[in-house]
Amino acid sequence: MFEDFTSEIMSYPGGEKITACMQCGTCTGSCPTSHAMQYTPRKLISLIRANQKDTVLKSLDIWKCASCYSCTTRCPRGIKFTDIMYILKNLAWKEQTKKENKDITGFYSAFQGLIEKRGRMNETELIMKYSFQTNPAKLLEFAPLGMKMIIKGRAAFIAPKVRNQDQLQKIMKLAQERGGE
């Protein structure tokens, strides 16, 4: 369907300008998590340009983006790298390469599951679900903090939800189907 990985990225909103990259590294230099990356943002662009789709989508680095948009606002060539990170995560999700990084992506599916079901988020439930899906031992790590939050009245026990759940579920499903085209 696509000639190469670059044209695939360019076909998604936000990915258009990737070929303008001059490899200056401003993105990496501005990124608060790049110090921990094997493939820095600049390198990811290089890998995309070199058509190394598998390497990119399996990389843990794409899950290290905190969405702070520093790279995007500073990029001298107007590349929206935060959006590109989202595109890469979308593709990893779709192509199941997310399994490589299950420990982390489990959080995303827990969150998404709750939203698709109820439409609103409850942090307490989210943490529990995430822990059960990945490693129940995590619950122990979260417990002391959870206790404090409960004491301060900052934890909700009744799961919030939207009234028109049918509508919400329907639009989410339609979007899912459409995105899968």
């Binding site: 200056c24 590294g25 990496t28 230099g29 501005s30 820095t40 600049r42």
Partner: peptide, 19 residues
């Protein structure tokens, strides 16, 4: 490209990627 200059422990720090 130098991305940012910060001050840490009284010295300046240049943040950049050595590409």
């Amino acid at each position: 490209k130098g991305a940012e200059v910060a001050q840490k422990d009284g010295r300046l720090v240049v943040k950049a990627e050595d590409t």
